[in-house]
Design a protein around this nucleic acid. Structure first.
Lengths: 345, 345
DNA sequence: CTGTTAGCGCCTTCAC
DNA sequence: GTGAAGGCGCTAACAG
């Protein structure tokens, strides 16, 4: 396996392994000529340092853990890429885990493996909140004894660093855009009540209506589960109402897809027959010229920022001397026309 | 960091660390009562083994490398998930690298890092073939000195194990479906000539036409670069011809998307105005009820198989006593109606 | 500037 | 059944 070692090249260069180590790590003084001899030997023997041995020796690895709940969701792959870019620049390797939104069967197991691997830090989007496990979750994470940065989702009662999105603001702006376009009958396909981002987006929706003195109709508030099918079904229900909305605000990308699917089946054109704004971008909309306005999040940037925060923590010797850093980024409203008011119903 | 060690629990249980190691690894005989004592101590002290130390000691890690060229492509995330499922069951961790189709700047660097980490094995989809680097590529991979399994793409002049797709067959079947639907004017949006899968798919297309005595028209063979834009542009060109095709075979998912985009812009309906079959599935087509027939690949299965092959190699002590395993899977034709002949032009 | 010594945490002979 | 001793490859004092 890792046959050739630091000692081999030490012998080859007629020095001690300490000296070799020094040039490897650029630490301490080494005469230029001996340095060259060593570098030569390294090349000739095609030596590759053993990170495992190094990690054991200095008692820290250069591996971080990244746990996401769904690699099929482009949002997370983009976050991962952002993380990866910054990690690369800092010689950190990534063990990537897909918890598949499964706390009990996947996430716990992965956290244990990561602990065994003695990862240096962890960036994690926790599985959706399940209150009954909250305290177990907290102690699992704390027991890792390493810097942790949350992405997109918080852990209740925790004080981990994190990079989040201002969901209230995003939903507010999206809803406001519909209002400004002239809509008054605005429905929302909300997330489940158990989801903080879901609740926040609903809050933003209500705030917007309030500030424009538009009455909030409970009938227009539909709770889905962030999946495609629920977006589809709820849209169907909305459009079957006696007074259907003239505009829909959808709380995430998959439900927006479901919504679009339903509207297509109903033969309703966007925005001529019904206006629509969704939370989170979907690339395919642009490709197919569907022109759906969306609240977009800086996914790549979120990953980069998370990794940068983690780096700071990692580099502080005493993990306590840097204050908790919780970034709350603003999403961006991208208007493409689907919010227009042309209602001819 | 990993403060508590095997010795701590040894002292706690009044045994030697050797004995603790034995129960940890289920090796050798240990009296039941002492075993219980040890297990107790482990729980009480909340001991977590140090994989780094273990790896150094036994001279092998339980980490494998997985290198893909584009995490944004669902094909690869699905492959990764297949790999991950099997890896999980075998207590193997994954360091995931996205080479971003960039050999010189990314892939080389990652391979070096992976070697330093002393990974146990590697599953890799090499960056697209660039002949000038072929020999460098080969020696880079061989120098890793570990089992390697290729996925989807081959490395010229290599004899690594791998899981591939029968591209000729897939393209043949797809084209045949168009022929059987009654089409005679069938164009292909092919891949670049530098891509083996691209060339193979073209071969399959030609073979199909030949076997039905349909003349091959060079005009109907358009070479793209597997990206969306080229699918778009080439479709535009095809439909502007004096005698435009009545059917198109597209050689990959992104170009199919571009093709669909172009047809929409041209206001051409599928299949009423033009038939279409594409290589590789695109989930969105189903969601939006676009009903595009496709050649689909067992992505998840490919990942699982690759990991299983790697496992075999890893578990053989002498890496030479298992023959090279190269699987070539058959893609599947999924007909949804877009291949029908209704041409009214 | 360079070498010696010891140790990171675990596993593996080899004895008892 | 169990323990003592040594080593995996590297780094970190401590001497010189």
């Amino acid at each position: 396996m890792g046959n050739i070692t630091i000692r081999d090249i030490a012998m080859r260069a007629n020095v001690s392994s300490t000296t070799v180590s020094r040039v490897l790590n650029n630490s301490g003084y080494v005469k230029d000529t001996t340095k060259k001899k060593i570098l030569n030997a390294i090349k000739e023997l095609n030596y590759v340092p053993n990170a495992v041995a190094r990690s054991l020796s200095i008692n820290k690895t250069n591996i971080i853990g990244v746990m996401v709940p769904d690699l099929n969701n482009p949002f997370f792959t983009e976050v991962v890429q952002g993380i990866s870019n910054v990690a690369d620049e800092n010689d950190l390797n990534i063990i990537l885990c897909d918890s598949n939104e499964n706390f009990l069967e996947k996430e716990i197991k992965y956290l244990k493996m990561l602990k065994e691997q003695r990862i240096r830090g962890l960036i994690i989007t926790p599985t959706s909140e399940e209150n009954k496990y909250n305290s177990m979750y907290l102690s699992l994470l704390e027991d890792l004894g390493i810097p942790i940065v949350l992405v997109d989702r918080d852990v209740k009662h925790s004080s981990f660093d994190g990079v989040f999105i201002d969901n209230v603001k995003g939903a507010h702006e999206g809803t406001e855009a519909l209002i400004k376009s002239g809509h008054k009958y605005i429905a929302i396909i909300a997330g489940p009540n158990t989801s903080k981002p879901g609740r926040d987006r609903l809050v933003g929706y209500k705030k917007a209506l309030n500030s424009y003195d538009i009455p909030i109709k409970d009938k227009y508030i539909m709770h889905g589960n962030f999946k495609l099918q629920s977006g589809y079904e709820l849209t169907m229900k909305l459009m079957e109402m006696e007074v259907p909305p003239t505009a829909i605000f959808s709380s995430n990308n998959l439900m927006t897809l479901g919504c679009v699917k339903a509207l297509r089946r109903l033969n309703l054109k966007i925005p001529e027959d019904i206006a629509l704004i969704g939370f989170d971008e979907i690339e395919i909309f642009n490709i197919l010229d569907l022109n759906i306005s969306v609240i977009s999040r800086p996914t790549h940037e979120m990953g980069k920022l998370a990794m940068k925060i983690l780096l700071e923590k990692i580099n502080k010797e005493s993990s306590d001397d840097s204050p908790t850093k919780r970034l709350i980024l603003s999403p961006k409203l991208l208007l493409k026309g689907s919010e227009k008011y042309n209602f001819k119903g």
